[in-house]
Design a protein around this nucleic acid. Sequence first.
DNA 1: AATCTTGCTTATCGTACGATAAATTATCGG
DNA 2: CCGATAATTTATCGTACGATAAGCAAGATT
Lengths: 226, 226
Amino acid sequence: MAAARTRSPAVPRKRQSPEARREEFIRKAAEFFAEEGFAGGTRELAAKLGVTQPLLYRYFPSKEELIQAVYRRVYLDRWNPEWDALLADRSRPIRERLQKFYEAYTDAIFDREWLRIYLASGLAGAEINRWYVSVVETRILTRIVAEFRNEAGLPAQEPPAPGELELAWILQGGIFYYGVRKYIFDSPVQEDKARVISNALDIFFEGIAKVFGAKTKVRTRAVRRA
Amino acid sequence: MAAARTRSPAVPRKRQSPEARREEFIRKAAEFFAEEGFAGGTRELAAKLGVTQPLLYRYFPSKEELIQAVYRRVYLDRWNPEWDALLADRSRPIRERLQKFYEAYTDAIFDREWLRIYLASGLAGAEINRWYVSVVETRILTRIVAEFRNEAGLPAQEPPAPGELELAWILQGGIFYYGVRKYIFDSPVQEDKARVISNALDIFFEGIAKVFGAKTKVRTRAVRRA
DNA sequence: AATCTTGCTTATCGTACGATAAATTATCGG
DNA sequence: CCGATAATTTATCGTACGATAAGCAAGATT
């Protein structure tokens, strides 16, 4: 399979810098582990890379370190810094900002590789997964709460209450699970992603006012129980 | 470790029937694979069971068959048939029915074992996972759609449109992701589950009317795009 | 109590894994 | 072109895995 490399390379590939080669390994390893899971073998990965298995250990001291590098690559390279400004830009209506943000954000993370590595790393209890959850809270959900506090005439500068974040998580989860169904479970889904986001936002915007007001003023609304 | 079993057993355990013993193996295997992942070794599992590794092969022809048995056990044993009647009982308000249903349903599936095996089997591409997604659609979401069609004065007997199911998935996902955060990601969450469900339902009920009506009548509502 | 049956263990096989060392090939500076 | 240096391969080690075969021992049967 990876034999035609020994003598003259069919494509006389210019030698890459060690850093670039390492990056290439990480990139392909992300694809590989996304499909095979982190229990996938280093030999099979090396075959996918077109090299022999011991070469991996020239670039990474252990399989575990390689996996950590894959984590960092997958988690850190997707956030677009412009989104911070987009979410905070009060010259545009919040509804429009969130629509554009979620379309762009899901363009970035809704693919088989990202979602599979995200969930697999979460199942593995990876530290970076917990870190990312807190990133979502500070970068996305806290801003959403702040905007709704602002719209409701409430003080928006103070940090959101846990219960307020939990409300925003409902929106986040409703959208996120669409990606899980499509790319992890391979379920048939409505293909128009922008429409799904629009619907989720419509529901959230219509519904949040009542809940949000009742929640932040006084917690007297009875919770029906069994 | 599993040595004190050779001679007289400390607890002279009554010999169980082969079926019961097999069930015990499956139950403990579910615990084990939930924690270790399906890449966990049969030796370690046997140690947890207090038996030797080859004994597993007396009850299951292969590790794969054992995993399939774990799938069936985890997926099939949680649905309470009473929930079908609960969801369909129009003598009670739909809001109340859904609150009670989701409280009971999440009592059943929101634990570390179920959620971890559900997601791991989904990542593994297990057939039963896709089957379960369709079960959720027919048993839960289709009923929710039917109830809202009924409330909106629309014909409720015909099967839900894909877009209508997608709306109900937003609710389902919003609630489900709460469990994922708590039991898979080990994130700090608002502890009052009934309240989270109540909030999700409040948002959904307030928001759905507008979206649902607009959606099922005529698809003229513009979707904002980039 | 003797015998049969079956649950369980001990011993072991072949394979695949992660990792290391040594040899080999390719690239680059002079 | 040559020698140094780095990139890659070949060969191999120790271990852990899934699985099988043979033996032993505990109940059950008569």
